[in-house]
Amino acid sequence: MATTGTVHQTKWWSGGKSPFNLEYGKLMMWYFLMSDAFTFGAFLISYGSIRFSQNFWPDPNVVFNAFPGAGHANLPLAFVSVMTFILIVSSVTMVLAVHAGHKGDKKGVIKWMWWTILGGLAFLGCQAWEWHHLITGEHAVLVDGKIEMIGQTMTGNPWGNIVEDNTALTAALNTTSHETLVHLAHEFPKEGTATSIEALEKMSNAQLSGMVDVAHAHIREKGPVAFGGYFYGITGFHGFHVFSGVIINIVMLIMTQKNVFANRGHYLMIEKAGLYWHFVDLVWVFVFLCFYLI
């Protein structure tokens, strides 16, 4: 039966067989992914809609320029390209796991599933680092006539326009909190005023204000709040998909090891898990496009 000779002149739609020659489970998985594509599509399109309704939107190259262990080096898009490659590679290992399944090669399936799971975990680790960096990495922002240190959160966005009006900034220093002034004086000292944090902490606000070099501090206005909401919302929803994909893959791995598929005679479940995993990769391609590239 499993010959290709039957292909010719087959009446696919006449009933009694699948018109696509696919078993129902794979069909359902495909249509589920289709449906999920509309969930992600709706998220990304609302992001686009909000973005087009704003006069200003942060440049992703400015926001995503950090790399673990590289300190303050300006490396735009470097880390996210690592994440993208991790996901592409884990997609490739998944293809190989499915292929091994086709051949009934249990050892191959186990090996490649392991690599896929590791890839997924590595991606999640990267995402956790990136979120942590964005949330805790605070930036000087001019808010209502004073300077504040805020991170990129669901409700705050430090990536507005760079304030070029130095007189306004100098005026703002007068109402800025001590803590922030210490930070600014430490990071952006005027020439010849650099001292240790301990020394700065003991100084008065007036003294500190005189020491901050506002022209080079890259102080910004607040940016559009929705930027953070969408970034965490969508990458979080994608991360949740990666996470559930890893869980599914682990279950598949255990089932493979327990010979469930070998006894069943086919590894179709691996194929379905594979479809899901590739979809996660596919969504990332678009998240990557919408948040990091354009």
Binding site: M1, A2, T3, T4, T6, V7, T10, G16, K17, S18, N21, L22, E23, Y24, R264, G265, H266, L268
Partner: peptide, 10 residues
């Protein structure tokens, strides 16, 4: 596989 999925022929 074709026994488990009668609607699939090859």
């Amino acid at each position: 596989p074709s026994a488990a999925y009668p609607e699939v022929s090859f």
